[in-house]
Each structure stands twice: as C-alpha cells, then as structure tokens.
Design a protein around this nucleic acid. Structure first.
Length: 445
RNA sequence: GGCGCGAUGGCGGAGUGGUGACGCAACGGAUUGCAAAUCCGUGUACACGAGUUCGAUUCUCGUUCGCGCCUCCA
C-alpha cells in the first residue's frame, strides 16, 4: 500500500498518514457560510481537499472513506441578508447552498459523503454546552454561554498562541461579561425579532465554532483522522473547535490538521473595493470548470497562489493539448504510479501535473487519460470540450454550413473564398483545422 | 509587538549537496494552398552577504524585500 505523507499543522511537519481505522477513514473540511456566492478563494480548499478525498478512496477503498463538508446556515450575515430581503434565513441559505453545490460540481469536486447543516444540530449543540458547563469549561453570562479559555491548559496549541499573547494582540473591545478577555462565545442571545432557538439559557443562536465540533462528533466520531480548511481558520476557528471537543470528550479531536494557503489576485487579497473580486458563479460562465480546477492545482496547496484570468487561460491551453492527445483514446485501467506518488507526498499537485505532462504523448495517451480523470480532469469527450463555447457565440449548425461552403470552395481551388470563410469564422471565435481526415473546428475562447 | 510563511528563467511552478523538472510565452526549422495542430531545435534562473563543504540554488547564520494570522474570513 502506498504511504501517504501529509503536512500536519499541529506538528508543523510532514508525517506518515496512519488512519485510526483503515476501513473507516474520516475527513472533515470546513464548508461555506451560505450568505452569498462563493469566490474563487473559497473554492481552493474544496478542490484541493477533493483531490485528497480521491486519493484516500484510491488507497483505502471507496467505501472506506467518509468525507463531511458542512454548510453553515446560521450566521449574522445570513440574518442580515434575510432582514434586507424580507425573507426567512432558510430561503437565503437554501439559495446559496444550491448555487454552491452546483458551482463546486462544475469545478469537478465530488460530492462529500455528508453535508451536514448547523441548524439541524441544535440539540447536539445544547448537549455539548451543558457538558462543558458541567465540567467547568464554560459558563453562562447575560444570556450567553462562554467558553472559559483558562479552564483548558493546552489552549492555543494548534496556532501556537498563548492566552497572554492573544490578549495583548486583541483588536476588539472585550465584552464586560467575559471572565477572561480570551473567552469565546458558544451561544449568544437573540432578541425577540431575531432568529433564535430555545435553550436552557433562553432564546438564542450558536456561535460559529460550536457546529463543527458537534457535527463531527455526531457523524464522524470523537476522534477523526483529518480536518482541513483555509490557513486563516487555524485561529480562532480550529483552535476553538479543539477546545470545545477535547474538553467535552477528554479525547484527541483530530489527528491530522491540514490548511491551504491563501489565494490572492494581483498579489492582494480579493475585495470588492479593489475590483479584483471573482465569484465562482461568474467564472464558470467564462471558463470551463476544468481549466479553473487545474489552475487551482498548479501551485502546492500550502503555498499562496496568485489567481489571474491569464493563468486560467494558460491552463485551458494545457487541457486543449491533453484533450487532443486523448481524443478517441480509452482510459487505461489503472492510475499511473508517478501520479499517485506525487499526490502521496503531501498532495504535490504541481508534480502530479508534471507527471501527466510527461504522459502527454500518443504512446501514453491512455495513461494520461486515466491519470487526469483520477484527479477530475478530461471528464468530457474532446468534441464537446472544443466545441462547447460561449453561449452567445454562433450555433454549431451555422458553423458546419460555412465549413461545407468552404470545402466546396477549396475543392474548386477557390482559395480566396476559402480564406474569406476562414476569416469570417475566426471573427466569430471559431478556429478551423484542416487535417488529413477533413476539417474540424473548435472555439477559440 | 507575538506567531508563521515565502523569495527559482519573460510568466507560472516543482525539486535537488554535484547532468539547467515541467508547462505557458518567444524564436528557428519541418509540415500546410493559407492557417491551425503536431514534430524537431534554441535561449535566459535559483533575492543579497557570510559560513559549513572537494563542491550550495539546495544546509546554517545574517540582511533586504514581500505576505499571512493575532477572536468577520477558505
């Protein structure tokens, strides 16, 4: 069996991956808060850890890997949008959860085994808070339930922040009811006109971190193999999940923590004010999902990646080449070893792509196809890849008609007419290729 | 201030104590009615300064520059 090495944030080093139970490998990735369209940076962990999911299934068997990715469907931003539009929070969260699922599918991400929602786990959250209060790790204050950071000796181990440093660096006003400035909220009160659930501490709603702890316990167990997300979640989100789960259960929460690096645009964080904001929903109308997927995999997942439309276009050209080579080729029955080895080394996707490039020859086309399909690429047939262009472009039958006119012109050596048709099609974004077996066409895009 | 990451050719991006990964772009050639695609070929790199070493892009230290997190955030 192939050994998988993973960089574990907890240990700050690469480690051999040893699952708790090889017949029940469990991974969890922090999913979206569904209050708006996901941006391309949100898609990076989805695509990267989708590759991990595929690798684990290959190594341990498809039926032996469970992958959960949550949907955060209660949040102040969702509440604000619901008030703005005068609709229920469920209406907002369902809308964006649906778009999210569609967009991530276009990016070639497999559905996770489970997509649990926060609002479906209120009883579990209340139970965990009760446990934490009973054990002295949490307390009630003015309708809030707070986690008491000082009650946990190792608090800060993942992010390597000490409680004192946190307080020294605090940028926000400390709520007066906190026993300690570093304490964080498990439950907060809702006013009468706000969304809320009944609880032993009054009507309220959960804090951000609690849902992940509860959903992981319910669906995957008290200790899981892999928990992943963006680097910015290390603190406070994952630190606080550890605090909640380990204090409630007295067991290790997660064996391997994985965190992907940031995606920037022009070297800067995406923001609407900078005008460099790209939603996935918009990008998938401009590029094939596979080109976007490949772009997100060109850099190693822990490195920062600078996203640009040019880089997506470059990856599209690479896929063009792969699609040409593999047209009419049946995928080999097994995944190329070089690819598995690259991915097994802490998901070295750039090396994996290079391994695929090395297979991009006529002789090894079947292996290229098998390898690419394993990572979610080359999933369509070549004709549709080249010919399914922008929706506002000319229809395929119009193109075919012009090509037939051109074939007649060429047959009668009327090259002026032939070139006129070629130029006209080029203006329409269609490139013709005269091959030994006739003329084929593709959209330039 | 604390914690952490990075600097490789025109661009993207792996990797290695000793032969310049790989891709994109560029250029030359073959091929083509013209193109496209393909094939062959060409070039340019390891931020800076010390140290260790027979030898460093790779290890160590320092410098400079860039970036992230420090309770909104993938």
């Amino acid at each position: 069996m192939t050994n998988i090495q993973l960089y574990n944030t907890k240990a700050r080093t690469k480690q051999l991956f040893e699952p708790i139970d090889p017949e029940n490998v469990r991974m969890y990735v922090c999913g979206p808060t569904v209050y708006d369209f996901a941006h391309i940076g949100n898609a990076r962990p989805v695509v990267v850890f989708d590759v991990l999911f595929r690798l684990l299934k290959l190594i341990y068997g498809s039926e032996n890997v469970t992958y959960a990715r949550n949907i955060t469907d209660i949040d102040d931003r969702i509440m604000a949008k619901a008030v703005d539009e005068g609709v229920s929070i469920r209406s907002i969260s369902n809308r964006y959860a649906k778009v999210y699922a569609e967009d991530m599918a276009i990016l070639g991400a497999l559905d996770p085994s489970l997509a649990p929602r926060a609002t479906e786990h209120l009883p579990e959250m209340i139970k965990m808070m009760k446990t934490l209060i009973d054990k002295g790790n949490a307390y009630e204050a003015e309708g809030h339930v707070m986690f008491h950071v000082r009650s946990m000796e190792n608090y800060g181990a993942l992010s390597r922040h000490s409680r004192d440093e946190l307080i020294a660096g605090a940028r926000v006003d400390v709520a007066p009811f906190k026993k300690d400035p570093a304490d964080f909220v498990l439950w907060k009160p809702s006013s009468e006109d706000q969304v809320g659930w009944g609880s032993p501490w009054g009507k309220g709603r959960p804090g951000w971190h609690l849902e992940c702890s509860c959903m992981i316990e319910k669906h995957l167990g008290k200790t899981i193999d892999i928990h992943a997300g963006g680097q910015d979640l290390i603190f406070p989100h994952h630190e606080n999940e550890i605090a909640q789960s380990e204090c409630a259960h007295g067991e290790t929460f997660v064996n391997y923590w994985m965190h992907n690096g940031y995606l920037t645009v022009n070297g800067e964080k995406m923001s609407k004010s900078l005008g460099n904001f790209h939603t996935v929903h918009d990008l998938v109308t401009k590029f094939p999902g596979e080109a976007l997927r490949l772009s997100l995999l060109t850099a190693h997942y822990r490195q920062p990646i600078d996203f640009s439309l040019e880089s997506v276009a470059e990856q599209k050209r690479r896929l063009d080449r792969w699609y040409r080579i593999t047209a009419d080729v049946k995928a080999a029955s097994s995944v190329p070893l070089q690819l598995i080895e690259a991915l097994s080394d802490d998901l070295n996707t750039p090396k994996a792509i290079s391994a695929l490039d090395a297979l991009a020859t006529q002789e090894t086309a079947a292996e290229l196809k098998a390898g690419a399909q394993f990572v979610g690429l080359l999933m369509q047939d070549s004709d549709s890849w080249f010919q399914e262009g922008a929706a506002d472009s000319v229809a395929a039958d119009e193109i075919e008609a012009l090509i037939n006119n051109r074939i007649e012109a060429r047959a009668s050596k009327d090259f002026a007419e032939s070139d006129r048709i070629r130029d006209r099609l080029e203006e329409l974004g269609v490139i013709l290729e005269d091959g030994p077996s006739g003329t084929t066409w593709r959209r330039a895009n």
